[in-house]
Design a protein around this nucleic acid. Sequence first.
RNA 1: GCGAGGGUAGCCAAGCCUGGAAACGGCGGCGGACUCAAGAUCCGCUCCCGUAGGGGUCCAAGGGUUCAAAUCCCUUCCCUCGCACCA
Length: 900
Amino acid sequence: MTAGTGEQRERDRGFDHTEVEPKWQRTWDEEDVFRIPDDAEDPEYVLAMFPYTSGELHMGHVRNYTITDAYARFERLRGESVLHPMGWDSFGLPAENAAEDRDTNPRDWTMKCIDSMTEQFKSMGFGYDWEREVTTCDPDYYRWNQWLFKRFRDEDLVERQGAELNWCPSCETVLADEQVEEGPGGAEICWRCDTPIDHREMDQWFFTITDYAEELLDCLDDLEGWPNNVREMQRNWIGRQEGASVAFEIPGHGDVDIFTTRLDTIYGATYFSLAPGHPVAQAIAEENDEVAEYIQEAEHADEDELDVTSGVFTGEYAVNPATGEEIPVYVADYVLTDVGTGALYAVPAHDERDHEFAEAHDIDIVQVVEPAEDADVDPEDVDVQEAAYPEDGVLVDSGEFDGLTSEEAREKFVEEFDGEHRTEYNLRDWGISRQRYWGTPIPMIHCEECGHVEVPDEDLPVELPEFVHTTGNPLDAAEEWKSVECPDCGGPAERETDTMDTFVDSSWYFLRFLSPDLDSAPFDSERAGDWMPVDQYVGGIEHAVMHLLYARFFTKVLDDIDLVDGIREPFTNLTNQGMVLGADGNKMSKSKGNGVSPQRIVDEYGADTARLFIMEAAQPEKEFAWSPEGVRSAYQFLQSVHGLAEEVAEGESETGDADGEDPVAGYVDREIAATTARATEEFEAFRFNHALQAVRDLVSLLRRYHERDGADADTVERGVRTVAKLLGPVAPHVGEEVWALLDGEGLLAEAEWPEADLPADYDVASRLVENTREDVRDIVETVGIEDPETITLAVAPEWKHRAHEFARDSDADNLVGALMGRDEIQRHGSDAADFAKDLQAEREALGEVLAPDEERAALERAAWLIAEEFEADVVVHSAADADDDLAGNAQPGRPAIRIE
RNA sequence: GCGAGGGUAGCCAAGCCUGGAAACGGCGGCGGACUCAAGAUCCGCUCCCGUAGGGGUCCAAGGGUUCAAAUCCCUUCCCUCGCACCA
C-alpha cells in the first residue's frame, strides 16, 4: 500500500478500521453478547454449515458466515434469543495428506488450522457463542459417533455387507456412491481428487438408510422452507419406482423375479433379459462358455465400450406366465444388476431400449397396447415395427384383457399372475467404512471365536493411536493399539481398523451445539425437543444430497430411539448461498489468478467493508462477481455514515422548530420510519441487498437535510441512530462506533430494533411526490425553461376527490350518468362532465388518492426537494387559494403545476 | 429422455405467487452542482418523438383470457442445473 495516496488521506480523516474493529470485537467478547444461556426458551437457531479445517477462510466462507451472522444479529436486536454457534468439521483425508507433506501429524496440523481459522473468524466480527464450539476430531465429540453407532446397531440399522465398492486408489479408501462423480468421458471419479475409481469387493459397515427411504422421500414435500432444486435432487437420488414383480420360470433354474413398472405390457414380452451380475446369469455361465465370456467382458468394460445392444443368447427359455409361451433368455449389459431385481422381461413394442435390442438380435416385436381414443395419436399411425410406443393406452392382443386401460391392467395383472406390488429405490445403504486414519474409529472388535463384538460403552471412546507415516492405513500398522482382549470371551482379538466416513460427524453436530460439554449423552434430549429444529440453515449447494440427506436420516433415527422428542426434520429453512465469482465473472481459481483473499480485503478496508460489499452485491442465493469498485463504494459509504455521525455529534444540539410543525422535518421523519419498515421486511425475507439499498437512500436524504439551513438536529440524530441500527447486522463495527458517537445506551449489538410501521398513506404520498417531481422536471425540460423562479402547485378541489372516490367504489353501468346525478358534482357544469368522462375512461384502474388536505400536506413536506433542485420558490395551494385557471387543471393525485 | 429453475432496456438485475403508471436498483454512458483542475461526492437524464406534465412502441416468440397482462393460461424456441442404459 502506498502511503499518501488520495485514498490514504481520505482514510486518515475517517475512522480507522484497524483500530475500531478489534476494539468492538473485544468488547462483545467481554460483555458475552453472543452467549446464550442453557435455560433460554426456544431460541431462534441460526446455523451455517461448519467449515472443514483447511486453515484458510475463502470468500465462499465469508459470504456464508456473513449471511448467518447478519441474520442472527438482526434477530437478536429484535429481542429473540439466538443460538448461533460454530464448530469444526475436522476429520478427513486432507489432514493426513498435509501431515505427510509437512512431516507432522493430522492432529497437530488440524489444531493449527483451527487456531488460525478462529483468528480469521474473529477478525470478521462474526458473533458466535464460542462456549459452544464443537470439534469433531476431539475424542469428546467422536466418542458419541461411536456411541450412536452402537445405538444404531441396537436398532438393526448397522449391517456388515460384502459388496462391490467404489475404491479410490489415490485416497486408498472406499467411497460412498454419493462421493463418486462423473468425470470427462463418463468415467467415475473421486469427488475429492478426481482420480478414476476402481471397484473392489470388500466387507464394510453400512448404515441401512434404505429403511428410511420412503420417509426421507415423502417428507421432502413438506419441507417448504427448502429450495426446490435441493428437494428435487434428493428425490432423484432416492429415486422411487412404483411397480410390480412377477416370477418367470426358467426351467432348470427355477423362478426368476422380475421388476417392472409396465406390467400391462406382459403379453408383449418376446424375450427375457438378465443382468451380467444376476445369480442365474452366473449359474448359466458355468456351463456356457459364450455367456461366461460375455459376462467377463461386460464386467471389465468401461462405460461406452460395449454397444447398447450388446448381449448374448443363453440357450435357455423362460415361460411367460401370461401367455404360457417360451421366450428366449439373454444376458445383456443394459440390464443393471442393482436396478430392480436385475432381471426383466422385454417388450420391444413398448420400450425403446428393448426395441433397439430386438432389432439388433432379430427378435419378434408384438404390439399389445394401442393409443386410447382420447390420445392425440391415431392408432393407425402407430407402427411398433418402426419404433416403440411407450405411452399408456388400451390393451390389444392380450387375451381376455383386451380393452382394459394400461392402468387397469397393471392393477389386475398383479393378482392374475401371482405377482406383488413393489416399490424400488435408487438409494443404497450408506457404507461408512473408510480405510483411513483421521476419522472416528469404528467401535468393533473382531474375535476369532465370537465374531464381531462391540466395544463396551464404558470403554468408549476408542481413541486414535499415535499417527505413523506409512503407506496404507496407519491403523493397520498400529499393532499395539490393534490387539485387544475380546470383551466377550477374553481371548485375543483385533480392533476394527476402519474409521467412519466424516459425514457421520456432520450428521448430528447441530445437536451437539445444544449441550457441547455433556458427558452422559451426545446431547441434551429435553433441550433438543425445545431448541430444535434449526430455523435457518445456510450453506453450499454441494451438500444438497450427501450431508443434508444423512442429517435428515440421523434426525429420524434419533427421534425413533427417543433421543429427540418428535423432531423428524433437522432444518426448517435452508438457503444455499451462491458463488462469489472472480472480477472477470469466472469461478475464482488459482490457475486463473482471479482469486481474492478475504484477509487482504480485511487488512485493507476492514471486515465491515467486506461484509457490506458481499451483502449488497446480490441476494444470498445468487452468484455475483467480485468488484473492486463495489468494495470501494462500500468502504466510502461506511466512511460517509461515520462522518455524518461525527458531524451530528459535534454540532450544537440546537433544535430547529422545536414545536414539530416543520414540514421538512416531517418529511424526513416519515422517510426514517418508512426505511425502517422496508429494511425490516427485507431482512426477514433474506433480501439483505434490498434492505441496504433503502438504508443508503436514507443516508443520502439525511445528509442532504443535515446540510440544509435550519435542519432539525433531533431529527437528523434520530435518523443516524436508525441507520446505525439498520446497518448494525451487516456492518457491526461501524454500527457500534456510530452508536457510541451518538451516546447510544449500551451496545448496539444489544440494542432494540426500531419500531417498523409504515407511516400512514406512505405509498400513496410518496408516489404523489415522485410523480409531481417528475412532472416538474418534464415540463422544465420539454419547454426549456432556463431558470424557473416560482413553481406553484395546486391541489384539486374537494368535489373532484369525491367524484374520484365515488367512481372507485361505483359499479354503475353508466358512470357519467351516476356522477352527474349527484348534485355536488353536477353543479360544476361542463368541468364536471369532462372530469366524469375521464373517470369513466379509466374507472377500473383508478388508484387510491389522498384527501385534499392530506395531499396538500404531503406536497408541502416535499416542496423543499423541488425548491433545492430548481433553486426556485415553491408554493403549494389548496384549490380555494389557487386561481381558477390553475386549479381547474388539477386532479386528485395530480396537482396542477405552474412554472414561471 | 425425465425433472427443476430461467429468458426483463447496452450489461447485471428487481417485479411475476396476490393483473392496474415505460417497469426498483446497480454498472456503463450523458448533463449539471462542488472544485484552479482531476478524483471522490451530490442532483438529474439514459426505448423513440415532443416548446406545459403529451404521444408512440415495449418485458424470448406466437396465440388466448380480461375493461386491463412482464404478471394468469396454451404453444414454440433458447439457456442453466440435477438425474439417467432405472426396467
